[in-house]
Every structure is written in structure tokens, then in C-alpha cells.
Computed example of a mutant assay.
Amino acid sequence: MSISFESVREREAKHFLPVVNRLPVAIASGSGSLVRDVDGKEYIDLTAGWGVTAIGHCHPALVAAIAEQAGTLMQTTNLFYTLPQLDLIEKLDAITPAAITRTFMTNSGTEAIEGAIKLCHRATGRSKFIATTNSFHGRTLGALSLIGQDKHRAPFEPLLNKTSVVPFGDLEAARAEIDDQTAAFVVEPVQGEGGVNVPPPGYLKGVAEACRAAGALLVLDEIQTGIGRTGAWLALEHEDVVPDV
């Protein structure tokens, strides 16, 4: 039985709560860099899961690995040790700065930022967070507080107290805002949704030094820049900067 795009849209409209404006395409299958819609039309997929899952579609090795794990153990909790998680953590440890010695596992980038907010608040005892203009860190309430875009923030205000936004790439503005009340400065090494904005040389290192001087923590959001997307395993390597999180 053939399925049309209109039938898919009508079915979804009855049950689904949308959070983004969808494109008029219903994806049915994919292979490599190509995807096909329900009408059989092919597209080159340049979305890569919002830029964080650049693995293509249905690569035989990946399909086999998923099938093998699903046939061995599908789900458990953090109450138990598991070898796949340990294997992954050790691989991540090998590509991160030596000073970063622990990994916190999450399901999404937003959860990673929420975890970072809680960690920095707990570690410093402070509640002031600093973000940058045009930044994007996720859509949960805590992460929204760190987004420097009114289109995302405004519908949900008031958000977390003591959150300030400074111009991205402006080291002097960052230095002026980081003080002894600051828990953390949260920044993307290269802004993604904000327009693929690259900071000037020395910016990240200067922010790191300002954070150290004030006893604040530096959080680098590498959700879209990590795992080789800028030519290094992590974008922080380009400036040899070591964050706290």
C-alpha cells in the first residue's frame, strides 16, 4: 500500500505536538548520505541530526554493531557496570585533555548542559552563569537560560536568575562580567545555530584565564564541534585551552 505525504501530515496533525516547523517531506528510508521520502524522491541529507550525528544512514558496520548489542543486552540502569559504556568512556578519555578525568553520560546535548549547570553550581556554591549572544545550548529550562537568542528565550521567561549574556568573541566584555559570584562561563568554541561564528584567536584562552582568576568554571559546549568536526577531535585543541567541563 502506497503512502502519500499528505496522509502522513494528516495523521500526525491529529496526535503530534510539534516543536519546530517541519519541511514538507516525510522521510521513509536512507542509505549513506541519501534519504528517500514516501513518494520515492531522493535527497542528499546535509542535516546530520542537527549536526551531531554525522554518520550517514544504515552503514553495514553500524547496523551490525547495533544488531549485535541488541541481541546481547538492550537496556539496564546505572546501578550496574556494563562493558560497552566502559569501552566508550575509555575512548573518550583518550581524546580529551588530561585534566578532564571523568565522563557523565547523557541522552542528549540539552541534558549534558543541564548536568553542567548542576555540576558548576554544586562545585562553586555560586548561581551566576554567563552565556554569549547568538548561542544555543538546548531547549530545557536551564539550558534555555543560557541561550543568547530571544526567539528561544522569550516564550518561557522568567528563566533562571543570575544569568547574563555578553557578546560572543568579545574578550573584554567577558572579563568585565566574570566575577567572584560567577559559577561558570558557558560558550561554544564555534557557534552552530547562531551562524557558524568563529571567535577571534585567543578568545577562549582569555576567557579560561579570566575564569581561573575569579574562581569560576569554564564550560565548553562541544555538542556540535566535537568528534572531529573542526579538523581536531575537539575544537578546544585549536587554542590548546582546557575547560573545566
Rank of each mutant, 00 (worst) to 15 (best):
V241T: 15
T103H: 06
P200Y: 13
G51N: 01
E222I: 05
G142M: 03
S127K: 10
G195D: 00
Q149Y: 04
G195K: 05
D87H: 10
T132S: 06
G115I: 03
I3T: 06
G192Y: 09
L88S: 04
S108C: 10
F129D: 03
L119N: 12
V166M: 03
E239K: 05
Q181F: 00
S127N: 15
L23N: 04
A184I: 09
L160W: 11
A13H: 07
A70H: 13
T47D: 11
S2I: 14
L204V: 02
T77S: 04
A184T: 12
T53I: 09
E237H: 05
A210I: 07
P199E: 11
A112V: 01
A64G: 08
P84D: 08
S33Y: 04
I227V: 11
D179A: 14
T96R: 14
D45G: 12
Q181M: 15
I223L: 02
E157L: 10
T182E: 06
L171C: 11
P243T: 14
T53F: 06
A99I: 08
A154S: 10
T82N: 13
V219H: 02
A99T: 08
V8N: 07
S164K: 00
R102T: 01
C120L: 07
S135R: 02
A123W: 15
V165C: 04
P18T: 09
I100S: 07
V166N: 09
Q69W: 08
E114K: 07
V38M: 13
K118T: 15
I223E: 12
A184H: 09
A112C: 04
V190L: 07
D240M: 14
E172P: 01
G202K: 08
L171M: 03
D221R: 02
G138D: 09
I3L: 04
N134I: 01
E239H: 12
H152Q: 14
I66F: 12
V35L: 01
